[in-house]
């Protein structure tokens, strides 16, 4: 059975992922189903947000796109190249057009390298320009991410705050002028006031460099400002995918609704109409039969335990994998 109703015409998309499966072996001859047959596509210039709780496979998915984590099966087609079957050296050059920024800005930078070395490294590895050109490039990158090159070039990462480190990471990821940027929870380690700065910066960089973004987050309030489409994942499966507007205005999956209502509202007079979601996701070693969300779902019936729901269109461009979608 295929689960491809939501995929768009092949010629329109920059990245197309089909039936991607990533598994990890764990002691006791068991297998963790981190990503179970996930399909999606991203058009050029879009920002796709991948949203879900810890353990839903969103980070693994991001790594599997870049083949940092080898998928067990499935295809990842980027600009017509099938990344899963590329040779080592071809993969290396393909990766220059997909870059990644990581969750913890401080530990993802080498503390012994200066900012100049960190941002220059990708250019140096690919022998882009001579030394002077490279330094000019580094300076302009640092300028673009809102850092003063004269002040930061010769300092090391531990001298900077989390927000500044994230700016340095962004500068590094843009050094090779990639087409796509995968951002893995880039703001979840930052204060709310700094979060807004980094989100705005990512939007600016997207316009300036013509980027396509995949933005991974557990917090639906953060992705609203930045995404054009949202994909909600639960235990390695896609629950819902649609435009940002449709997901927020009429979430069709009960899990999406629960995620939205979990966001704290900065208004003490606000009465929460919280859709009850209790407990935590079950173990991905032994996921529930049928719909994986059924153990926590308020609308679950016997059908949900026996038959796995497939993604189907509920409104224009909004797809949901649920037997009983919210009206």
């Amino acid at each position: 059975m295929t689960n491809h109703a939501h995929l768009r015409k092949d010629s329109d998309v920059l990245l197309r992922v089909e039936d991607l499966v990533v598994e990890f072996k764990v002691p006791g001859n068991k297998v963790v189903n981190a990503v179970s047959s996930v399909s999606f596509d991203v058009k050029e210039g879009e920002t796709l947000a991948v949203v879900g709780e810890s353990g839903c496979g969103k980070t693994t998915l991001g790594k599997a796109l870049l083949q940092i984590q080898k998928p067990k099966s499935g295809t990842v087609r980027f600009e017509g190249n099938e990344l899963t079957s590329l040779s080592k050296s071809d993969l290396r050059s393909a990766r220059t057009s997909i870059q990644m920024i990581f969750q913890d800005p401080i530990s993802s930078l080498d503390p012994r390298m200066t900012v100049r070395q960190i941002v220059e490294e990708p250019l140096w590895i690919w022998s882009k320009g001579d030394e002077n050109e490279r330094v000019e490039k580094v300076k302009s990158l640092l300028n673009n991410v809102g850092l003063d090159p004269e002040l930061v070039l010769d300092r090391k990462s531990y001298e900077f705050s989390g927000g500044q480190c994230q700016r340095i990471s962004i500068a590094r990821s843009l050094a090779l002028e990639p087409k796509m940027l995968i951002c893995d929870e880039p703001v979840s380690a930052l204060d709310v006031s700094i979060q807004a700065q980094i989100l705005n910066l990512l939007n600016d960089m997207k316009d300036r460099y013509g980027l396509t973004l995949i933005f991974i987050s557990h917090d639906l309030s953060v992705v609203k400002a930045i995404s054009t489409r949202i994909m909600v994942m639960y235990l390695g499966k896609v629950c819902e995918i649609g435009t940002t507007e449709s997901i927020y205005s009429k979430p069709a999956h009960h899990y999406t609704a629960a995620l939205i209502s979990s966001v704290p509202v900065p208004d003490p007079t606000h009465k929460s109409e919280r859709t009850p979601i209790t407990g935590e996701p079950p173990s991905p070693v032994d996921p529930p039969s049928g719909c994986r969300f059924r153990t926590r779902c308020p609308a679950a019936t016997e059908l949900c335990a026996t038959e796995e729901p497939m993604l189907r269109e509920v409104s224009d461009g909004q797809f949901v994998a649920c037997h009983y979608p919210r009206a």
């Binding site: 709310v192 006031s193 979060q195 807004a196 700065q197 989100l199 705005n200 939007n203 917090d219 639906l220 309030s221 953060v222 609203k224 400002a225 930045i226 995404s227 054009t228 940002t244 507007e245 927020y248 939205i260 966001v263 509202v265 900065p266 208004d267 003490p268 007079t269």
Partner: peptide, 30 residues
């Protein structure tokens, strides 16, 4: 929340990514 007096509190409040804001809008920052 009804009556913020300190500009800092207001700025902090405005920088919260709000689920009710328009999609794709620019977040106010400090």
């Amino acid at each position: 929340f009804a009556n913020m007096k300190m500009p800092y509190t207001e700025a902090l409040f405005k920088s919260i990514p709000n689920i009710q804001m328009k999609a794709g809008s620019r977040l106010p920052v400090i």
